[in-house]
Simulated assay, not measured.
Amino acid sequence: MSEKEIILTREGLNKIENELEYLKTVRRKEVAERIKEAIAFGDISENSEYDEAKNEQAQVEERIAKLEMTLRKAKVIDETEISLDVVSIGTTVKVKDLDFDEIVEYTIVGSAEADPYELKISNESPVGRSLLGGKVGDIVDVQVPDGIAKLEILEIKR
């Protein structure tokens, strides 16, 4: 069984590498210190500080493992090779919602990088999937819970 590639932009890769470095060099030490302090309180069988610190340690280690796995499967897209003729992963696309007469700018990224608060949408999301391959001037239909939204592609850039 082949593992699914995780598509990342250079920015997304850097963000993951920085978080991993922080977890390994800073958070691990902080949690280890908390465990050490909790053990100093004595009997660990009824020591809530110890239990809390051990749970935190497990969460940190789980996150480290997840980030390392992501990096092993990562395929970084070369942003200089991205065509601006069509919407693709790594492009930023300005669209007009024809139903609400609103203009929004989305950056299309791989699912590991998606962050709706930063308007970075996954290529696997309904909007991302509908926009992929579109050209300036195209009107695409997006399946949304209320029905179908119509988006006009106004601009494609890096």
Rank of each mutant, 00 (worst) to 15 (best):
D51K: 11
E105Y: 08
S83C: 04
K29D: 13
R10L: 11
V76Y: 00
E5N: 15
L8D: 05
A114F: 00
K15A: 03
V76I: 06
E113T: 13
K29P: 04
V86E: 06
R10S: 11
A53C: 06
K15W: 01
I89T: 13
I89H: 06
S83M: 03
F100A: 15
T9Y: 03
L20R: 04
A32D: 08
V93S: 10
E105H: 07
I39T: 09
R10V: 06
E68I: 05
F41A: 12
V60L: 04
E61L: 14
V95A: 12
F41S: 08
Q59V: 05
V60R: 06
K24G: 04
G90V: 02
Q59C: 03
T92Q: 07
N18D: 13
L132W: 09
T80A: 10
E102L: 15
L8H: 07
D43L: 02
T80F: 00
G110R: 02
T9K: 05
D115K: 10
A58F: 08
I89P: 03
Y50N: 00
K73D: 00
I103T: 15
I121H: 02
F100M: 15
E37M: 15
A53M: 04
E5C: 04
Q59A: 14
V109H: 02
D85W: 08
D101Y: 01
R72E: 11
V26Y: 10
E68M: 07
R27H: 07
E118G: 07
A40D: 12
L84G: 04
A114E: 08
E30Q: 13
K94H: 02
K29W: 01
G42K: 04
Y22G: 10
T9L: 03
E62C: 11
V104P: 09
A114W: 04
T80P: 00
M69N: 11
K96C: 09
R129W: 03
E52I: 13
V26T: 14
E19A: 02
E113Q: 07
D115P: 06
R34I: 06
L71V: 06
K66D: 09
G128A: 12
F41Q: 10
V31K: 15
G12M: 01
S88W: 05
V93T: 14
A38I: 08
L132S: 07
V31H: 12
V109E: 06
E68W: 05
D51A: 11
D51Y: 15
I7F: 02
E81F: 04
I89K: 09
F41I: 02
V26Q: 11
V93H: 10
D99S: 14
E61M: 09
D115L: 12
T107L: 05
D99T: 14
I39Q: 10
E81P: 00
Q59E: 12
I35V: 09
E37W: 09
D85C: 03
A32E: 10
D97K: 06
E81S: 03
R10Q: 12
N14F: 08
K24V: 07
K120G: 02
D101A: 07
E113L: 12
D97T: 05
E17G: 03
E30I: 03
A114G: 01
L20E: 02
I121L: 11
